[in-house]
Every structure is written in structure tokens, then in C-alpha cells.
């Protein structure tokens, strides 16, 4: 095919101020990381609480957590994003609404929406991993902890969760990578993260393949770094004398 390759495109002017196309990719990567990391930390916290709730005795708390998981796992991510960006703000008090929609920088309000959306969506998935991790532990562990006088909270904090998290590092790694990939939905509400900047570069320069190739390479390197990081963590917390975590 007669495609006109130009790998120097990234160093050429975008025609806007003094920016070159590479600047767009760098800023896009910055937004992608800012969205994914913050959403991930929140998802991990919320998901852990929910995961613990699902394993507690009694009926009410597990039911609440189960309902949460069903809701947030089964509604498509895009629909949820539009809810958080277009629908929910309309139900805020008048003054907050004006602040959110008009006074706040649009990038900031889009950022808030997408972080809330990804955090709550991913929390449902983290919840299931945490629940599985806890349920995979021998039942004797909680009995042993309770028998020495630990409260339920202490039992989870000192005995069950440290083991459960070791077990679920591999699936959590994949959720961690997913949140980076899912962060590209932000482009649909106008947040100029990596994918949005890639599309913009493709449109403006008409060097479509170069733009998407660079994006592929960036996502690839990003994912490899995250995987290396998680592998290091997994090695560091590995229990001596055990293969592949607590069982």
C-alpha cells in the first residue's frame, strides 16, 4: 500500500503554540497515569472493605456487598462513565452543580468523573478477588486467631488479609493493568489522556500508523513496568518455605 511513513512526525510542530506532537503524548501519558493510579488506590481500599464484607458472618453486610458487585460488574463501563459525568451531576445541589459543570476546569471535572467511575467499577472486581483470597485460606486460621482473643477486626487485619493478599497478587496485577487500559474511556468525555492524544495526533497529522504505533509502544512499556513492579512485590512478600504464596 502506498502509505507515506514519517517517523519524524513526533518532533514536528502541531501548529498550536510551540508544541510538538511528542508533547501531546507525554501529557497524555501523564493523565493516563494520574487517572489509573488514583482510581487504583481507591479501588483497592473500597474493594478490600467490600471483599471482607462478603466473608463476614450474618446476612446484611454480605448482601450489601453482593448487590454492589452485581451492579457495578454488570453495567458496562461506558454506561457508568456517562452516568457519573452527565447524569449524577444533575442531581447535585444547584450551587455544587454550577461549580462542577461551569466553574471547575472541564479537564478537572472530567478527571473527577472518570476516577470515581473507574474506582467504583474496579472495586467490584477487587472485592471478588479479596473474597476469593480469604475463602481460599484454611478455616483454622480464623479459628486460631479468634481463640487467642482477637476481635473480628484484628483477625482480618493481622491474620486473614496478610495471607489473602499474598494469594491474590497475580489476579490483582491483572486488575491493575486493566485499570490502565480502561482509563482510555476518559477520552470519551474529553479528557486528553494517552488514547485521546493519539487520536488527535492521527487526525491532525494524518500519520495515523505512526501515532498508534507510538501509543502501542507506550502502553506496552507501561504494562511491562507495572508487571515487573508487581513481580518484585510478590517476591518480596513471598513466605519462606512456601511455594507460590500461602495455602
Amino acid at each position: 500500500m502506498n502509505y507515506n511513513w514519517d517517523w519524524n512526525i513526533f518532533f514536528k510542530s502541531t501548529g498550536i503554540g510551540s508544541e510538538i506532537y511528542l508533547d501531546w503524548f507525554i501529557s497524555g501519558l501523564g493523565w493516563t497515569i494520574a487517572v489509573a493510579l488514583v482510581a487504583w488506590i481507591a479501588a483497592l481500599a473500597i474493594g478490600s472493605v467490600l471483599g471482607v464484607m462478603r466473608t463476614l458472618p450474618g446476612k446484611v453486610l454480605p448482601a450489601i456487598a453482593t448487590a454492589y458487585v452485581e451492579l457495578f460488574r454488570n453495567v458496562p463501563l461506558l454506561v457508568q462513565l456517562f452516568m457519573w459525568y452527565f447524569v449524577v451531576p444533575d442531581y447535585l445541589p444547584e450551587a455544587t452543580q454550577i461549580w462542577f459543570k461551569q466553574e471547575l476546569n472541564p479537564a478537572t471535572s472530567a478527571y473527577i468523573s472518570v476516577v470515581v467511575c473507574l474506582a467504583l467499577f474496579t472495586a467490584a472486581r477487587v472485592c471478588e478477588q479479596v473474597r476469593t483470597g480469604i475463602q481460599a485460606l484454611p478455616r483454622g486460621q480464623s479459628a486460631a486467631a479468634l481463640a487467642v482473643g482477637f476481635s473480628i477486626g484484628q483477625t482480618y487485619r493481622y491474620v486473614l488479609l496478610p495471607q489473602a493478599f499474598r494469594v491474590i497478587i497475580p489476579p490483582l496485577t491483572s486488575e491493575f493493568l486493566n485499570i490502565f487500559k480502561n482509563s482510555s474511556v476518559a477520552s470519551l468525555i474529553g479528557l486528553m489522556e494517552l488514547l485521546a492524544q493519539t487520536k488527535q495526533t492521527a487526525e491532525f497529522s494524518a500519520n495515523i500508523f505512526e501515532a498508534f504505533t507510538l501509543a502501542t509502544v507506550i502502553y506496552f512499556v507501561l504494562n511491562m513496568s507495572l508487571m515487573t513492579l508487581m513481580n518484585l512485590i510478590e517476591k518480596k512478600v513471598r513466605i519462606p518455605g512456601m511455594m507460590g504464596g500461602a495455602k
Binding site: P138, A143, A144, A147, V148, G149, I239
Partner: peptide, 16 residues
Amino acid sequence: RAEVGFVFQHFNLYPH
């Protein structure tokens, strides 16, 4: 429970 020690069949040490 803090005043009553309990030893299990399967030891149930904290592996971590």
C-alpha cells in the same frame, strides 16, 4: 478467649 489457650489438630500457625 485470651484466658483460654487452644491447640488445634492442624496446628493453625500463621504461615506468613
